[in-house]
């Protein structure tokens, strides 16, 4: 089994939601992803994101993938 390496990707879903005055529940309803999974993403506990989820998030938040994620500096 490969050793799991820690990542430094930070999800900015919280900030994007606040900027758009949208709740997590409303976003979950709009894109059809469970609130549990969105909560995992928002709280930096996600290890991977499907392209389909990313597409739906970007469409709903009217942003680019780069707006949603950033690489944390060492």
């Amino acid at each position: 089994m490969p050793v799991e390496e820690p990542h430094r990707i930070v999800c900015r879903l919280d900030e994007l939601l606040a900027a758009r005055g949208m709740t997590l529940t409303a976003l979950a309803d709009r894109i059809g992803v469970t609130i549990v999974n969105l909560s995992i993403l928002k709280n930096q506990r996600a290890k991977a994101v499907r392209f389909s989820t990313l597409t739906a998030l970007c469409e709903a938040l009217d942003c680019q993938p780069g707006d949603l994620f950033e690489l944390e500096q060492r």
């Binding site: 999974n37 995992i40 991977a48 994101v49």
Partner: peptide
Amino acid sequence: TQLRDDTEGLV
């Protein structure tokens, strides 16, 4: 078990 570990945390 490996597959489950791989998909754990997948959103």
